[in-house]
Design a binder for these strands. Structure first.
Lengths: 231, 231
DNA sequence: AGATCAATATGATAATTATCACACCCTAAT
DNA sequence: ATTAGGGTGTGATAATTATCATATTGATCT
């Protein structure tokens, strides 16, 4: 039964690894056959806060944001997630409905499984469930720690932190095309758009970064790190 | 084998329920026999950030805080937990070491199991593991949402929010003895101690609350709710 | 009892951030 | 091509919060 490998052909898929480690090949074929891929354009909403959860999904390609909209209509961005961070997992096993929204920050491809099928496997396979659990914990730990980091900084430190976050964690490069607007950065770090722009301008004037529209080049990384740590 | 009931006699213990639902009586006897209770005085440290995790613990009585100390030596309080919020769960299944500290905000009693034993049960019992997972998710969801709530408010809104949090969630009473210092409130909402005190003073002057040292009486709850929502 | 230290409290001032106003550019729609 | 709207950018001013200084109370230690 090598067909499973063919159906789940995505090379680096961590979910596949997760299943392979603990689920028999026959079961896997099941899961792969019901797997569905969906494509979202930059800006599309993938999950609506409040919707009933009946799918299990994870990001295969692209970049998404997890967010919540306040009663006054402002967005608060909880985290950004790149492929194989199991973004949708957060409330999947604790709530009937999504507590957050997820939308595509960049063109994205999402893989989708029927949640009932995944839960079925979870019920029957404790090791699989434990693995899932540790991934959920890891993902939420990351969110909590990242949030604390941002919280303890002032405006410039927060903006520097976000730039380093994209450079080190998302793109692993010191030159990249910012996938988010200034307003999204503001929604993430809890400051206003104007002040995010001002901070970026200051960094540019101080020759710490170069800005060509959406493209950012980190010119003096150690100084940026210093601002992130102490600014 | 009714002895299990005797050994795990704690009336309202949710952990017991968790185990009872999914673990056979024989196994339960195991767990109860190795259960240990530890008492902590107000101010004691229960878990040290960085320590290796080899125990599984939950709060039976009292009140604790989850916190992280920054490089500059300031505490950031992540959450407060009352009994049966599974505070220690956060990193238990995703990390070798604790990522946060836990300390007693009030005199507390903690129940402790050997983590290996719990993990053993988890490996053998998927339903038990799923239940654990949903509790972890619930706990972390609560932390994330609470943090967003606080983040979107100004000083007075944040302080009002904390007062309502203690009144509604922790004590379920509009008169209570504040278990935390003004500084701890400040560490929780990310403001300075002085400004927390000032906000409390303002509320007192406006006859929204009464303050007798540590004792707080909420005199005008609807106004406090209004400040929490829009202030 | 006296000394010491932390918590509470208040005021003055400085630093930080939000708000409002306006301009420019780019893109999408008509 | 023109218009409308959103993103970007900058300045002036108001609001908010931090910092520093100082006083008082209360608890703890000797």
């Amino acid at each position: 039964m090598d067909g499973a490998n063919v159906k789940c052909s995505c090379e680096k898929c961590q979910l596949k690894t997760l299943f392979f480690n603990h689920v028999s090949i026959d079961e896997l074929t099941d899961i792969c056959q019901i797997k569905e891929e969906r494509t979202y354009a930059k800006g599309d909403t993938i999950i609506h806060e409040g919707d009933i959860i009946n799918e299990f999904l994870y990001l295969k390609e692209g970049l998404v944001k997890l967010l919540k909209t306040t009663t006054t209509g402002k967005d608060q961005i909880i985290s950004f997630s790149k492929p194989f961070d199991f973004v949708s997992l957060l409330s999947v096993f604790s709530s009937e409905r999504y507590r957050y929204s997820v939308s595509a920050v960049d063109n994205s491809v999402v893989c989708i499984l029927d949640l009932r099928v995944v839960k079925n496997h979870a019920r029957q396979n404790a090791l699989f469930t434990m693995d899932l659990m540790s991934r959920i914990s890891e993902a939420t730990d990351k969110i909590v720690i990242e949030n604390l980091e941002i919280k303890r900084k002032y405006l410039k430190g927060r903006v520097a932190h976000v730039l380093l976050y994209f450079a080190n964690y998302i793109y692993e490069k010191d030159e990249f095309e910012l996938p988010v607007s200034r307003r999204e950065i503001a929604d993430y770090i809890g400051m206003t758009t104007e002040n995010v722009i001002r901070a970026l301008s200051t960094f540019r004037k101080d020759k710490i970064i170069k800005i060509y529209g959406k493209e950012i080049v980190i010119a003096d990384k150690s100084r940026l790190e210093n601002i992130s740590e102490f600014g």
